[in-house]
Each structure stands twice: as structure tokens, then as C-alpha cells.
Nucleic acid binder design. Structure first.
Lengths: 119, 119
DNA sequence: CATGGCAGTATCATTTCCCATACTATGGGT
DNA sequence: ACCCATAGTATGGGAAATGATACTGCCATG
């Protein structure tokens, strides 16, 4: 579990906001989810996409997402091992949330992507 | 500044997600923003609404929101001091984001609000 | 035989976050 | 003179999150 953002989720209605953040907080969860929306991926694939994540962290974040019922972990008993991560139904309900976050980030958070042909 | 979630925001497109989270992460920012969407408030008002936040923390979170251009701080030179916090235009663009977070929380994150007349 | 890929664990160190408490300044009320 | 409210700042400590590095076991490849 990441930091328990609030001991009790009773800070009037606003706290549902925090309740949601509790699930996608964690330095990599947002990006992990984002990639899993594209499709199911195996561990090494995610690792390559995230580049700067350590193995330890990626495992930890995936375990939390799994514990929270957002991601499913499927082990294929092969050699070499193959473990696939996919979104659960509950995980898929986060799609609009992640997309809104991404859209806002694209519009307001990033430095502005090189005004090449911008009028 | 809260944790710099990522040194560089280059983790492929997914990182816009993290870019956004960078602004609303911090134990109280989500709720602060939520309340400021209702209306401008002074420091003590916010404090009462958040109840369990410490003065130090509230100040810190507000300062970060201000630094990020999401919240404006207006000092009225009176006695006793009056300082009002309001959303900037940029801050208001977060409205859909916060609302999506809140809605997901209401639907999926909270324990389920007492199945009184639920069939 | 040595190396590399897969999917992890284990251990240790650091960074960051958050809390509790005490303190400041001004003026009003009693 | 003393206490209250407002809006903070200062200081110190402890917990949580993240990072770096090394190690495991199996097989295929060269």
C-alpha cells in the first residue's frame, strides 16, 4: 500500500477524489495503467516501455494494482517464464479517468511541444 | 514541491498522465481544489473544511498550488488578516479532471453506501 | 563453459513526505 | 492586563516511498 492518504475518507464529498487517487498514486501506476489499456503485456514489455523504472519498483506497483483488483496477473508455466498483466473489469473502469488525466497533461502540463508549424 | 514523480516526462505518451498527477498529488490538493471549485475561500475556511489538516500542511499545499499557477492568493491588508484563495483560470481547467476522479471514487472506491433500499 | 533473457527477491540506503508543537504579529473584547 | 482570532513560520522527528545493487533458477545460444 502506498501512503494511506487519509485515515478516514470522510472529508465531506471531496474525499472521493482522494479515494480514487489512492489507487493511481504510486510513481508508476498511472503509466502502467495507461499502457495496459493498449493491451495485455508481459513484465519485460512493461519494463521496456517504462525504461527508467527499476525491477523492484515495477513489481511492487504491479502487486499493488493486483491487490486492488485493477490488474490481473497470469502466469504461464513455461520456460522461460511468461507472466502477463492485463486489466480487470474494474481496472477498465479507470479508462476515462486515465484519459482525462492524460488529456489535461497534454494540454496544460507539458512545456508545449515545439511550435513548429503552429500559426 | 512534492516528489518529482519523474525526472523527465518522456515515458512515451503515457507520461502526460503523470504530468497531471504531479499537480494534484500531495495529500490535500485534490480536496483543496474540490472545495475551491465551489467558491473562493479564506485560509481558515479551508482549514475548517479539511478538519484534520495541520496549518503547516495546508499552507504548504496552497503554496504549491499557487506556485503551479492553479490557485491565486489574495491578501487583504486588514486586521485581523484576511487571505483568500481562489482558482486561477488554469486551475479551473482542472474541473473535469477532479470531477472524474470524484465520480470514479463514488462509484468504485468507497465501500458502498449502506444498501438500504437496494434490491 | 560463459552469457544472456525472463521474472522475479532480498538487502540496504536515501529521499521525500507528513506530523506535532511552539512561536510571531496585530488588534479587539472584557 | 489577558485571551482570542487570523495567517502564518520555525524546528525537529518519524514513517513511508523510492532507488541501487546483487542474487536466484531455468534454458538456449555461441
Amino acid at each position: 500500500m502506498p501512503r494511506t492518504r487519509h485515515a478516514r475518507l470522510d472529508c465531506s464529498p471531496g474525499c472521493a477524489v482522494e479515494a480514487t487517487l489512492q489507487f493511481i498514486d504510486g510513481k508508476w501506476k498511472g503509466v502502467i495503467l495507461f499502457h495496459l489499456f493498449e493491451r495485455t503485456m508481459r513484465f519485460s514489455e512493461l519494463r521496456r516501455r517504462l525504461a527508467s523504472v527499476t525491477q523492484r519498483m515495477l513489481t511492487a506497483q504491479l502487486r499493488e494494482l493486483e491487490r486492488d483488483g485493477l490488474v490481473a496477473r497470469t502466469i504461464h508455466p513455461e520456460i522461460p517464464p511468461r507472466v502477463e498483466y492485463s486489466l480487470t473489469e474494474r481496472g477498465r473502469t479507470l479508462h476515462p479517468v486515465i484519459m482525462v488525466l492524460k488529456d489535461w497533461g497534454d494540454m496544460h502540463a507539458l512545456p508545449a511541444p515545439a511550435p513548429s508549424a503552429a500559426a
